[in-house]
Amino acid sequence: MGRKKTSELDAAVTRQGIVETAEQLFRAVGYAKTTVADIAKALGMSPANVYRYFPTKAAINEAICDRLVHSIEVKSWAAAGEEGTATERLTRFVIAYHTIIISSIIKEKRLYDMVAVAMDEHWAVVKQHSYRMCDYLCIILEQGMAAGEFRKVDGSKMAITIHEALAVFLYPSLLEHRVNEDDGRGTILDDLRALLDLLLHGLCANA
């Protein structure tokens, strides 16, 4: 039994090493230009050994993107914090997410390419990410309703509605067009705040 646990731990460590090394290469060289052989060489192992853990290069990228979106979620939720009204917390959560996407993906072309591939080839990762985002929004909405700040609504359905309304400000493939259209004027964040204000006003119990 001890050997099995050690073997599973070794496998997990090896998988993590492959993912981390591949991400470094994808960021430095580009997803399209990096081969499994390149990843194996950087790790000092054979391509066949890499394929023992990941069937394709795309599968490695899927693991990278899954880890990336989890990291973004954690940072955004931390920005929401526990202090303040539900309106303030929801605003901080969304603004933080938007800001992280702009700074870490939109402005880093090679990372954007990785995410774009994942959205095309690994929709499950994106879908699960969307579900978790709606869960976070639902938590804040239900806290706001419990405090009498928001009017009574179906929290789950409203979270989906808000998520879909904000999608153009949150998802790289949509946000990229807004960034290009912005032309350095810095109006995107203002537009996001205006939309949030409209959505939150509609939720206000005293509206």
Rank of each mutant, 00 (worst) to 15 (best):
L203R: 03
P172Q: 06
G202T: 05
D182G: 04
V179M: 14
R193V: 14
L195R: 05
G186M: 10
T187S: 15
T187A: 15
R178G: 05
L195Y: 00
L189S: 08
L196E: 03
C204N: 15
L200T: 05
R178E: 02
L175G: 00
T187E: 14
E181K: 13
P172S: 11
I188D: 04
E176G: 01
H177D: 11
L175I: 06
H177R: 13
N180Q: 12
G202F: 04
H201E: 03
S173P: 00
N206K: 13
A194V: 04
L198A: 12
D190F: 06
E181W: 11
D191R: 12
L175Y: 03
E181I: 12
R193K: 15
L203V: 07
R178F: 10
L200G: 04
D197Y: 04
D183V: 12
N180G: 12
D182P: 11
L203W: 00
N180Y: 06
S173R: 06
L174M: 14
R185D: 12
V179T: 05
L198P: 00
D197A: 13
L174F: 14
A194H: 03
D182Y: 09
D183H: 11
A205N: 11
L198N: 06
I188L: 15
A194D: 15
G184Q: 10
E176K: 15
E176V: 09
E181D: 15
L196G: 02
G202C: 03
H201K: 05
I188Q: 02
A205E: 07
G186N: 03
R193T: 11
D191C: 07
G186V: 04
L199Q: 09
L174P: 01
G202R: 05
G186F: 07
R193M: 09
L196C: 07
L203E: 00
L189Y: 03
E181P: 00
E176H: 11
D183Q: 14
L198E: 06
E181M: 10
G184T: 10
D183S: 09
C204K: 10
D191G: 02
D182F: 09
G186I: 12
G184R: 06
D183G: 00
G202K: 02
D190V: 15
L189T: 15
N206F: 02
L189P: 00
H201F: 03
